[in-house]
Amino acid sequence: MAKARGAIVVDIERCKGCQVCMVNCPTDTIGMAVEVNGKGYHYAYMENPESCTGCTNCAVVCPDGVITVYRVKQN
């Protein structure tokens, strides 16, 4: 069966660290960075990049639209 591999790119400076993406990630890919961005928010990042399937759940629930999602199908 074809398995999707994905990746997200977070616009770090626009992220407000709300964590809504994190709890909605079905594969526990997303974590919150220890570091903060220019506004002092702990921004979202791929803590477990290998588990991302590119499902876009994080991006569609992100209130600030800071997540871009890529996906490739692998055999």
Binding site: V20, P63, Y70
Partner: peptide
């Protein structure tokens, strides 16, 4: 491989809403 990006019909302005709103 792009499957989702913020629509360009949203401006570049940072949203004035609270985190998670």
């Amino acid at each position: 491989n792009l499957v989702y990006r913020r629509t360009p019909l949203m401006t570049d302005a940072t949203l004035s809403y609270c985190p998670g709103c």
